[in-house]
């Protein structure tokens, strides 16, 4: 396993988060990828509780987070504020950003270099 960072994928739809994970595993078999998609009852939305539990349960203390829309980020922020782990929320294009990070983590590229490669993908404000 790559120990630099784990990736957390947060989406309003469980299938989107799981589908993106499926895509990333293709290039990053040694990277820990966790998800928090949808609400507990399977409906559309983002859940602070699910995000928070994913962060707590993750074996890694450094977690990079990619997300789809607005409330995903706000719930991530509250989760980041309520954990001791190093949680970084990346405002990158969801699919392209997570794919870039996963590929480079697998190749054991250093975190600051990965950040540089992600910078043109930062499309959210």
């Amino acid at each position: 396993m790559n120990k630099q960072a784990a990736l957390l994928l947060v989406s309003h739809v469980e299938g989107i988060a799981e589908g993106l994970k499926e895509l990333l595993i293709q290039v990053a078999t040694d990277v820990t990828i966790i998800t928090a998609g949808g609400l507990d009852d399977g409906s559309v939305g983002t859940s602070f509780d699910r995000i928070s539990a994913a962060i707590t349960d993750c074996e890694s203390n450094t977690i990079w987070c990619f997300y789809d829309l607005g409330s995903a980020k706000m719930n991530l922020e509250i989760a980041a504020e309520t954990t001791d782990k190093e949680v970084m929320i990346l405002d990158a294009a969801f699919v392209e950003g997570a794919y870039t990070a996963a590929s480079l983590l697998q190749a054991e590229v250093k975190l600051d270099e990965i950040m540089q490669q992600l910078s043109p993908l930062m499309v959210k404000n």
């Binding site: 609400l39 409906s43 939305g45 983002t46 602070f48 607005g70 409330s71 706000m74 719930n75 509250i78």
Partner: peptide
């Protein structure tokens, strides 16, 4: 509210 709303209004009203 943060835990239960499930939309953007959860973290907003919660905050």
């Amino acid at each position: 509210l943060v835990s239960k709303v499930g939309g953007a209004s959860g973290p907003l009203y919660g905050s």
